[in-house]
Design a protein around this nucleic acid. Structure first.
Length: 424
RNA sequence: GGAGAGGUGGCCGAGUGGUCGAAGGCGCUUGCCUGCUAAGCAAGUGUGGAGGUUUUCUCCACCGAGGGUUCGAAUCCCUCCCUCUCCGCCA
């Protein structure tokens, strides 16, 4: 969440940020009017409390030295003030709850370096790497190749679980596992990340820290009996790992990586990417998370992006980097780069990683602070990025490395993990 | 699922109705001392909010959360949440 003081002191700035995100600004006015009332009542109640505290002190003194009449009078006065306090407090509490609820629905402020635009058509391309392969035979989509090889099974997947699920066998199942290990090894051995193994079911408060709740509850799978949520990304447990803690400046930045499955209801994406395993209710991903300081978080984002890019470079998959404009930015993000890999079946670049600086947005929600060298406390900054989505990487490898005979060449970087040069 | 214990400042830990925002210790900061390091000595050291004469100050809140009793609650009562232990079940 953003600092309520920012709304209080620079409401026009916040409204402009919302407009840049292509969103309604009414929420700012709603919060402002509640806040005025809140501060007004706070002052009233503080004065009354101060009076009551003074009376209570006198009671204690007079009990030892004064007359019982004096004590009686003071106690009555205190009681009257107490009644006034009670009535103001109940109103105050209600207003505070409303403010807190609303503030959780305000998105992060886009960084000043983010281009302004109303939707994804305004996302600038930052750079490209590699050349899309020219096929001298009719290239197939993975949803044709996979089943033809007997390694991908969409029919039985839907028998088991419905749409947007996949079953894989033998070499493709191994490929999934190889990619997982390849990515984790790369990030831990060469990029300095600490591998973490995390729960896949998390509490409501954990999902609130990272911003999935309360606004996007309908997109998450929820276990009703225990009010637990299936994580939509390892970002959730990795970022919240250090919530409600005070870190030392010298231990920052913390670099975490984790492999997890990701579970998404994909509500509202009907008709999108319905073929193959591009958009699934369950997919594997290796996630990268930084917990860092405000001074360096934007530089760190560049590093994080380069770590995700390194995965695609080593797999020799053509990709491009785009920056999300204000209108396309996620709820918690101040700045985001997407990596898009070349997919022959789409004849286009397709998102395979999203890397964001959430600044102090998640840190405020999760109360994640650090003690600076000068002794002051400040909120940390959190970054997250896919390093990268494994299912889509498998698709990219299968489609980009396909051969005329329908089998798949294994990228050099994966050969040690698979122990062979051809799949199928 | 059954039974029990517990949640106090950065950490540990005392504190059962009135100068308790909270002893003590550790840690941290600064100074002194010291060939170096360590140790030692001294002082300081919670967070948040509102206001203001805005680098000095005042007030308020906060001892898991919420309610209650009371003139007054870390302390008493109720509800909830969380953690841990033992038993049962179980990969």
């Amino acid at each position: 969440m953003i600092d309520i003081k920012l709304i209080r002191e620079k409401p026009d700035f916040v409204k402009q940020a919302l407009l840049n995100r292509n969103q309604d600004t009414k929420i700012v006015d709603d919060i402002l009017s509640l806040d005025v009332r809140f501060r007004n009542l706070t002052n009233q109640v503080n004065q009354l409390r101060s009076q009551r505290n003074a009376i209570s002190k006198q009671v204690a003194q007079k009990k030892a030295s004064g007359s019982s009449q004096e004590v009686e009078a003071l106690m009555n006065e205190g009681k009257k003030i107490g009644e006034q306090i009670d009535s103001i407090e109940s109103e105050l509490k209600e207003i505070e709850q409303q403010i807190n609820r609303l503030v959780l629905f305000v998105p992060n402020i886009p960084d000043s370096s983010v281009p302004i635009g109303k939707d994804e058509t305004f996302n600038p391309e930052i750079r490209r790497w590699g050349e899309p392969r020219k096929f001298d035979f009719p290239a197939q989509a993975h949803w044709d190749l996979g089943p033809a090889l007997g390694l991908m099974d969409f029919d039985r997947a839907s028998k088991l679980s419905g749409s947007r699920f996949t079953v894989m066998y033998k070499d493709f199942a191994r490929l999934e596992r190889a990619l997982m290990n390849f990515m984790l090894d790369l990030h831990t051995k060469e990029h300095g990340y600490t591998e973490v193994w995390v729960p896949h079911l998390v509490k409501r408060s954990t999902m609130t820290t990272t911003g999935q709740l309360p606004k996007f509850e309908e997109e998450a799978y929820r276990i009703e009996a225990d009010d637990l949520f299936l994580i939509p990304t390892a970002e959730v447990p990795l970022v919240a790992l250090r919530s409600d803690e005070i870190l030392e400046e010298k231990e920052l930045p913390l670099l975490y990586t984790a492999y997890t499955p990701c579970y998404r209801r994909e509500a509202g994406s009907y008709g999108k990417d319905v073929r193959g395993m591009i958009r699934q209710h369950q997919f594997d991903k290796v996630e990268l998370v930084w917990i860092t300081t405000p001074e360096r978080s934007f530089e760190d984002l560049e590093k994080l992006v380069s770590h995700a890019e390194d995965v695609l470079k080593r797999l020799e998959l053509p990709y491009r980097v785009i920056q999300l404009c204000t209108g396309d930015l996620g709820f918690g993000a101040a700045k985001t780069y997407d990596l898009e890999v070349w997919l022959p079946s789409y004849n286009a670049y397709k998102e395979i990683s999203s890397c964001s600086n959430d600044t102090d947005f998640q840190a405020r929600r999760g109360n994640m602070r650090y003690r600076r060298k000068d002794g002051k406390l400040a909120f940390v900054h959190t970054l997250n990025g896919s390093g990268v989505a494994i299912g889509r990487t498998l698709v990219a490898v299968v489609e980009n490395y396909q051969r005329p005979d329908g089998k798949i060449d294994v990228p050099k970087a994966l050969q040690p993990y698979l122990g062979c040069e051809v799949l199928g």
